[in-house]
């Protein structure tokens, strides 16, 4: 049983079945007008049932299979994406305070350093030119509002 739970298809299937159960529970709250034909719950419940069936179709062969799976996630490989996500979240949080040009400049500097750029000339040039170019293009030329 425990070895089966290590299989990614079983994990995904169980997660999706639980998620579908929660969707059905929430969707039932929207069924207020008697008839199911026009009910706002109809498609969410129907699609959740489809997800449950498909999840079972994924879990059962995976349990029967004797093949060992190689780990899909390696925590070592997750460090860089986690750093990029954290930095982007920080960038978004600071955008309303620092405004686009300054926040983007800082974001580009830190992200390039995270990704391994060590030449300060490149870092300086890109982190200044790109935000200015985007500002000129979007805000001035196209009249698009920037964050």
């Amino acid at each position: 049983m425990i070895s089966n739970l290590k299989k990614s298809k079983v994990q995904d299937g169980v997660f999706l079945i639980i998620l579908s159960g929660l969707i059905i529970k929430e969707a039932l709250n929207y069924h207020k007008y008697g008839s199911w034909a026009l009910s706002p719950s109809l498609i969410p419940i129907g699609i959740s049932c489809v997800i449950i069936l498909l999840s079972l179709a994924m879990i059962i062969p995976a349990i029967k299979s004797e093949e060992e799976e190689a780990g899909i996630f390696s925590w070592e490989a997750m460090k860089s994406p986690a750093a990029v996500i954290a930095l982007t979240v920080l960038y978004l949080a600071l955008l309303p305070i620092l405004h686009f040009l300054i926040a983007s400049c800082g974001y580009l500097v830190v992200m390039m350093m995270i990704l391994g750029e060590r030449k300060f000339l490149n870092i300086g040039l890109i982190s200044v030119v790109i935000p200015l170019s985007l500002y000129g293009l979007f805000a001035i030329l196209l009249g698009v509002r920037l964050p």
């Binding site: 978004l92 955008l95 974001y107 990704l115 750029e117 890109i126 790109i130 985007l134 979007f138 509002r145």
Partner: peptide, 19 residues
């Protein structure tokens, strides 16, 4: 280079989603 491209694309993603 990817260390130059990714930060630029990430900024474009933010700008595009906001615009």
């Amino acid at each position: 280079k990817e260390r130059h491209l990714f930060p630029i694309v990430a900024t474009l993603c933010v700008v595009g989603a906001f615009a």
